[in-house]
Write a protein that binds this DNA or RNA. Structure first.
Lengths: 349, 349
DNA sequence: CTGAAAGCGCTTACAG
DNA sequence: CTGAAAGCGCTTACAG
């Protein structure tokens, strides 16, 4: 492998000048620069990254540590994110180092990777409120970006979708169709996005003058079984107490809701409207529902380029506070939503 | 961060001695070694891997390049493998660098990672016959291990399950139950494991005196839809030409076969026996089938430790030829297999 | 058993 | 505009 010294020898230049020419330093004579470039090409020169790293302190690698969960395999979004991020980083000449966290101490895996790989920064996903990983990285002044934030007002770089807006939009759609008793099958209560959506759900319901019943709100993983169990409980209530619409925080949940409605012979959208947020491949999944599912949607994929850019800026020295990217979800009106069914309650109104 | 120099200064030793003490060189005075260890601990010393790499030429990282396929997300095995490998490598103090390959030239991604990351070696999955990636890595004398081999007699390090044996065992079970017309829904025809299984399928069928009909053999991706389509075609044949048993190369395929049998009102196992190979979580999936699915099984997870060990040995300089690990699949007899149904053909025999 | 020295391949003040 | 020198933090012949 050719080195800077080799190129210098070839051209009668010092390695220092070759380095400057190749790295675009302005003071280099443009003719010299051309000769250097030509020779570098000819000799197939590739900078030795390790040597560069030793002197610059940068590694050109970023780490991502996955927390192992038994039901990870059911969740395709994580995989999308991994491949999407890897591709986005590749384009920017950065490598992704992957590790899995299997220990009780969530910070240990970060310490280990840091001591081993000299990654320049990290990408975190699924933060929790008071996330110890974030506290650790901030305390050590290590660059990182977060997919989703762990607080509405986050003071670190993050990418997030506008969770409040999508909750607001969904509720607005349903209330405008006349629904007043609306169930909400949400994600895990500890996660920020779920809290944000719930909060705005309450605000939007109040704005529409619709009551919120705690028994029509459920939290859990974004799985079909949680959707099914939640919907079954809500829909088994006596006629008149039963929701006429259900909002779901994920399409898998909606799948469970559909199944529960089917089992109870409740027709969608005639007797039950369903809206969900779709973070997988907008449309692809939802279109296959019968009837096609109305969604707010933004794919995981959309996060990858912004995340890569934010992290690279942060590593380059940008202050963490300003680095944020909030993406609005799109609305896809399909056939799972319709006017609220007439019932006694309405007559009384 | 403490360096060797710092420890040396602390103890009145040269960095060279500190290095030797920490790296277990035998000539170091054992008392000196103890003092060095104590000081290293106390100062929280962590070797700077980048510096080590610059001089040793080793990076302590290995790469894995995933080929993007549209239906990757449906396939949980890849994710299992990624997390399993990452964990296995972590235990051995090696990091996994991940990239995705989105280009037409399958070798380009390897060249790029090599020029950027100085990984010590690679892990390949799903090799094809005459795989250009393998040719490239061999030509450049780069260490790698392969999950599955691209030729029965491979001259590089690999982990594989014994595909011939599992085909042989499956056929033996079915023929011993009296089945003679056996369908085979296999993986993609280009892949070596599929070829190995098919080859042994033919051998085992011949050994049992059962005819092999080409129209009862189908190749494709390990998806439910391929299983369904294949089984539908086989089972729609007139009574007497229809298979009484189907062997599947994956549990997703078997799921499709079950669905086709259900749609055609063909009872399992009374009218149709089904056996599949299960490479996910042996048992977990198959047990949920109705009736529970008879399988040969070995999880992807089982491959991870052997793959990590083989690669590390190869990087350390072991000759490639001897490095192999062939794992036999286990047999799980469940309720999807039963005696062949009596029919005219049998009466005539 | 330990130290001084050279070197891995680069970058970057400091001179000129 | 270019070069000589120092240095990033380690390892490892070579001396002693």
């Amino acid at each position: 492998m050719a080195t800077l010294k080799d190129i210098g020898a070839e051209l009668g230049l010092s390695p220092a000048t070759v380095s400057r020419a190749l790295n675009g330093f302005p003071e280099v004579n443009s003719e010299t620069r051309e000769r250097v470039r030509e020779a570098a090409d000819r000799l197939g020169y590739r900078p030795n990254r390790v040597a560069q790293r030793l002197v610059t302190g940068r590694s050109g690698m970023v780490g991502m540590i996955l927390r192992m969960r038994p039901d990870m395999r059911e969740d395709p979004t994580l995989f999308d994110m991994l491949t999407g991020l890897s591709a986005a980083l590749s384009l920017r000449d950065v490598d992704l180092v992957l590790a899995v966290d299997q220990e009780t101490d969530p910070v240990a895996a970060y310490e280990r990777m840091l001591s081993r790989s000299l990654v320049d920064g990290f990408i975190l996903a699924a933060p929790e409120p008071d996330d110890p990983r974030i506290a650790y990285l901030q305390a050590h002044d290590l660059p990182f970006v977060v997919h989703g934030r762990h607080a509405f007002q986050a003071d670190y770089p993050f990418y997030d979708i506008d969770n409040r807006k999508l909750a607001r939009d969904s509720v607005a759609l349903l209330t405008s169709l006349g629904h007043r008793r609306i169930g909400f099958v949400n994600g895990e209560a500890e996660l920020t996005y779920a809290q944000d959506r719930l909060r705005e759900f309450r605000v939007a319901m109040a704005a529409a003058g619709a009551p919120v019943e705690d028994s029509l709100i459920s939290h859990g993983r974004l799985t079909e079984s949680h959707g099914y169990a939640s919907a079954l409980a809500m829909l088994s209530r006596p006629e008149g107490l039963r929701p006429t619409a259900i909002l779901c925080s994920g399409t898998m949940l909606a799948k469970g809701v559909y199944r529960a409605a089917h089992d109870l012979a409740i027709a969608i959208p005639q007797a039950l409207s369903v809206v969900a947020h779709d973070d997988i491949w907008p449309g692809l999944e939802a279109d296959r529902f019968d009837p096609p599912l109305t969604t707010t949607a933004k794919s995981m994929r959309a996060a990858c380029d912004p995340l890569a850019d934010l992290l690279i800026q942060r590593i380059a020295g940008a202050a963490p506070a300003g680095l944020r990217h909030i993406e609005e979800a799109d609305f896809f009106l399909r056939e799972s939503t319709g006017p609220a069914p007439p019932r006694e309650g309405d007559a009384r109104r």
